[in-house]
Amino acid sequence: MYQVMMIEDDDHAADDLTALIKRYGAERKIEFSVTRHATAIPLIKSHRSYDLVFMDIDLPGINGMEAAELLRTYDPTVPLIFVTNLAQYAVHGYQVDALDFIVKPVSYYHFSMRMDKAMRAIARNRREHVTVTTRGGVRVVPCAEIVYVETQAHDLIYRLVGDKGDEPLRVRGSLSALEEELGGAFLRISSGCIVNMDHIRAMQSGTLLMDNGDTLYASRAKKKAALETFADYLGGSI
C-alpha cells in the first residue's frame, strides 16, 4: 500500500486525478491510499511522511511552491509532482527538487509516464536492500545485486551477481509479495520469474539474455508488456 498526498483545491480536478491514480493502480496491480486536502496547511503542520505528493501550484493561502519549500525542510526525498495549469511556473519546481510536473487537463498517457517515473523513485526511497530469512539466519541482499528471482515449488531462488556456479540463495516466500517490495527496476516476465532490468543485456521476442550469462523466456501472456516496459525503462520514462 502506497500513501499518496494530493494538495488540490479544485474538486473536479481532484476527482479526475484520483480516478487516474485508481486506473494506474488497477492496471499495475498496485494499491494506493490517497489523502486529499484543498490547502497545503495540513501537509505542512502534520510533518507526516508520504510515498508520493501531488501538488497544485495555484493554491489559496500558501501556494504550492512555498509549500514545497517547507516540505523539503523535513522530507527531502519524497517524490513531488506538480499538477498545475500554470505551466510557466513549473520550471521553478526543480528548485525544490520536484520529480516532474503535469499540466492540466491531465491525460492518462502523460500521467502514467510520470507515475512510472515516480514508482522508481519510491522504490529507491523505500528500500535499497531486501532482508531474507534463511536457515542460517537473516541475510541482507542489495537490490542492485539481484539478477533475477524465480520460483521452485514454494521457494524463491535468488540469482545474484557473482554467484555463477555457487548454490543460489533459496528461501520460502511469495513472488508476488517480493515483486511489490522490490518494484522499480524489477519486471515480471512470467508467473514464476521477476528480473532486474538493470541486468538485462539483450531482449528480443521475449527471450532475455542476462548479464550473468543466463537466458530467460517471457511467457506468452507477459511478453508484450515486458517488451514495452523494458523499452520504456531504457528510454528513462518508467
Rank of each mutant, 00 (worst) to 15 (best):
D116G: 15
V161Y: 00
A123G: 14
S107H: 06
P168Y: 00
R139I: 11
V132Q: 02
N125I: 09
V132P: 06
V91L: 14
R127M: 10
H92T: 08
E128I: 09
E128G: 11
H110T: 15
G165S: 08
V132D: 02
C143S: 10
D166E: 10
Y109N: 05
E167N: 01
G136A: 15
K164A: 04
Q95D: 15
V91D: 06
Q95C: 09
V130M: 12
T131Q: 11
E150F: 00
T151A: 09
Y89C: 03
E128F: 05
R126T: 11
Y89T: 01
H154P: 03
A121N: 12
D163N: 03
Y148A: 00
A90C: 06
T131E: 11
V140Y: 01
A90V: 03
V161H: 07
M119G: 01
Q95H: 10
A90Y: 03
S107P: 04
A118W: 03
G136V: 14
I157A: 01
G136R: 15
V130C: 11
P142K: 07
I122C: 08
L86K: 11
D97H: 08
D97K: 09
P168I: 01
R124F: 07
D97M: 06
P142H: 04
L99V: 12
L156G: 09
V96D: 13
P168K: 06
H110D: 13
Y148S: 08
T151R: 07
L86Y: 08
T133D: 12
G136S: 15
